[in-house]
Design a protein around this nucleic acid. Sequence first.
DNA 1: AATCAATACAACCGCATGGGG
DNA 2: TCCCCATGCGGTTGTATTGAT
Length: 359
Amino acid sequence: MMGRSPSSSDENGLKKGPWTPEEDRKLIDYIERNGHGSWRALPKLAGLNRCGKSCRLRWTNYLRPDIKRGKFSDEEEQIIINLHAVLGNKWSAIATHLPGRTDNEIKNFWNTHLKKKLLQMGIDPVTHRPRTDLCLLANLPQLLSAAASHFVNPMNNNSWDNNSLSLRLHTDATQQLAKLQLLHNIVQVLSTSPVTPTMEALNHLGTLPLHDHDDHLHEYLRMNSQFELEGLGNSTINLASNPNQIPYSSTFPSLIDVNQPTHNVHQPIGNSKIFNGDDSDGNDQFGAIPKENSLPPLVSVLDSTDQCFTVNGMENKMNPSDHISNPSTSTSTTFGEAWGELLDDDDAGDSFLLDLQRL
DNA sequence: AATCAATACAACCGCATGGGG
DNA sequence: TCCCCATGCGGTTGTATTGAT
């Protein structure tokens, strides 16, 4: 299709550049009859004026019969993102989790689509952590919009077939990773924002029931915001900045250690093993997470007086008590309900995020 | 309709790795 | 232990295609 000039050839007179249908046919015919054997010897035996390496690449990246062609599904996309967060640019390792996809295809898809998508979500595609080189508040609507689509439950997607149980289970695990990472991003944006209503909204997290399967979320929220989530009722939410606060990363690791190369830095959540492929021997896949990875402490609502914030150059003044004292206000209620939906893992996301956007 | 820029992706390059002698 | 060779892998390039102006 595309590629190098068809007229190019190397110093040995071997052809380079795009393959012709005739060359493809010769290569396929030979391999189907004889297997590839020695790639170096293959071109001569197959009647091809190509180097063995070129033949190998053509076969493995394009002609192999088990290659799955066409667009990446949402599930595949999610798996790639989450595996990349864990494995870094180990395209071949990622490819082992996506049957029919080549490392080259995944790499190209990452570079042309997913990197940009993550950037739009406010996530650094290298570290998978929130970007700090932009005005996060200004980008919050985009972040939430991206999150809304991100949280659409893939289990309800018709694209699953009956033979994809492994992929489905895998996605389930990576989905949890994705959620946690995105929650991390959102909380980070909210917690670093001086805008009072976001803190008010976060207050209502404390009233939410959590589900057994959301232990990680539970722990994440606890460590990030110092909420007392269990048996909270109407008890006070401690949002105060605490100098002794345990960095969440020390007990609940970020998915990514921004300070380390991405290929050897990641910890599984809790003790769970998430991936069962080639890289799950656990020897040195998961390293320690430095303390710099912690979120900044949240601002105390209780201590706050009138707070000023600026959006798009306009100064606003909010009295947090207006919101805290009235939990029935629409933003508070919808945030809490929606957060519950999010944690409920069913119809996660849309209403919650839309409500959050209104804050 | 023409031009330019952005995108997509096959293919290439060069280094890394592992096995055999 | 060292060297050579075959293959694997990740990064980059080059060009056809698509979209915007």
